[in-house]
Amino acid sequence: MKFKEIVFTDAEAQRVYASYIKRIRHVLKNLLPADSEEILMEFNSHIYESIESRGDASELKSLLDATDKLGDPELVLKPLVADKMLDKATRSFNPLDVLKALMLNITNGISYIIFAILYLFLGAFIFMILAKLANEEVGLYFKNDQFVALGFVKNTSNYQEVLGYWFIPLMLLAAFLFYIAITLLLRLKKSFLKRN
């Protein structure tokens, strides 16, 4: 089924309706088209039913009553959009979708703050790669066959850097694997919440 706009005889009611639908579309713009369409049709259905059962009230009054009951799309849809964005992000593994989903969910609990911090930690891998390109004293250091440091060591005379420029692909691989692991954990958390 496809979304179909309601046609009003009252021009003012048509303008108010078009504005409300535009606000809903704006809130839903980052969702998958199917999810966006489903939510839009649900809101439209509520408006249509309210208009059809208006009795003696004018179209405009019925429409305003319906939109008041539904609420501001920016507030009412925020939790639903956050949930749908999280679904989309954990399925697509797209970093931008993950970032948007976390920003929308950041107020929904401490676990989302922890996930945001874990994703920010990925920046450390990128920073170390760039630092290695600028300074050869960045790497994986051992002393007496024991791990000492990962990163920058000022005085390298007593330490052995074991990776050389293999440090860069290793950090890229580590960042990729860390990203996949965090996103899978986020997906697991999401599926756990759905079951409860």
Rank of each mutant, 00 (worst) to 15 (best):
D10R: 02
D10S: 13
A13F: 14
Y17D: 13
S19I: 04
S19R: 15
S19Q: 13
Y20N: 12
Y20H: 08
I21K: 13
K22W: 00
K22H: 10
R23G: 00
R23C: 01
I24H: 07
H26T: 12
L28G: 04
L28N: 08
L28K: 04
N30Y: 12
L31H: 04
L31G: 09
P33Y: 06
A34G: 00
D35Y: 01
S36D: 02
S36I: 00
E37A: 11
E37V: 01
E38L: 00
E38A: 11
I39T: 08
L40Q: 10
L40Y: 08
E42T: 09
N44M: 00
N44H: 04
H46G: 14
Y48H: 10
S53G: 10
S53F: 01
S53T: 14
S53H: 14
R54K: 15
G55I: 04
D56H: 07
D56I: 09
A57D: 13
E59N: 11
E59H: 11
E59D: 09
E59V: 08
L60N: 08
L60C: 09
L63S: 12
L64D: 06
D65Y: 04
D65M: 08
A66S: 15
T67C: 11
D68W: 02
K69V: 14
K69P: 02
K69F: 12
K69I: 15
K69Q: 11
L70W: 00
G71E: 07
D72G: 00
E74N: 12
V76L: 01
K78N: 05
K78F: 06
K78Q: 15
P79W: 00
P79S: 02
P79L: 01
V81Q: 05
A82Y: 06
K84V: 03
M85T: 03
M85G: 01
D87N: 13
D87H: 06
D87F: 05
D87R: 06
D87S: 12
A89C: 04
T90P: 07
R91P: 02
F93Q: 11
N94W: 02
P95E: 10
L96V: 08
V98P: 06
K100Q: 14
K100E: 15
K100C: 02
A101S: 14
A101T: 05
A101E: 10
L102H: 09
M103T: 07
L104F: 09
L104N: 04
L104Q: 05
T107A: 12
T107V: 10
N108P: 01
G109Q: 04
G109E: 08
I110G: 02
I110W: 10
S111H: 09
Y112A: 02
Y112W: 07
I113E: 03
I113M: 09
I113N: 01
I113D: 00
I114N: 05
I117R: 00
I117P: 01
Y119L: 11
Y119A: 03
L120N: 12
L120R: 04
F121I: 11
F121D: 03
F121P: 00
I126S: 09
F127G: 07
F127I: 13
F127A: 15
M128E: 13
M128V: 01
I129R: 03
L130Q: 08
K132D: 07
L133I: 15
L133V: 13
L133W: 14
N135R: 14
E137A: 14
E137P: 03
E137G: 10
V138E: 12
V138F: 15
F142V: 13
K143A: 12
F147Q: 03
F147H: 09
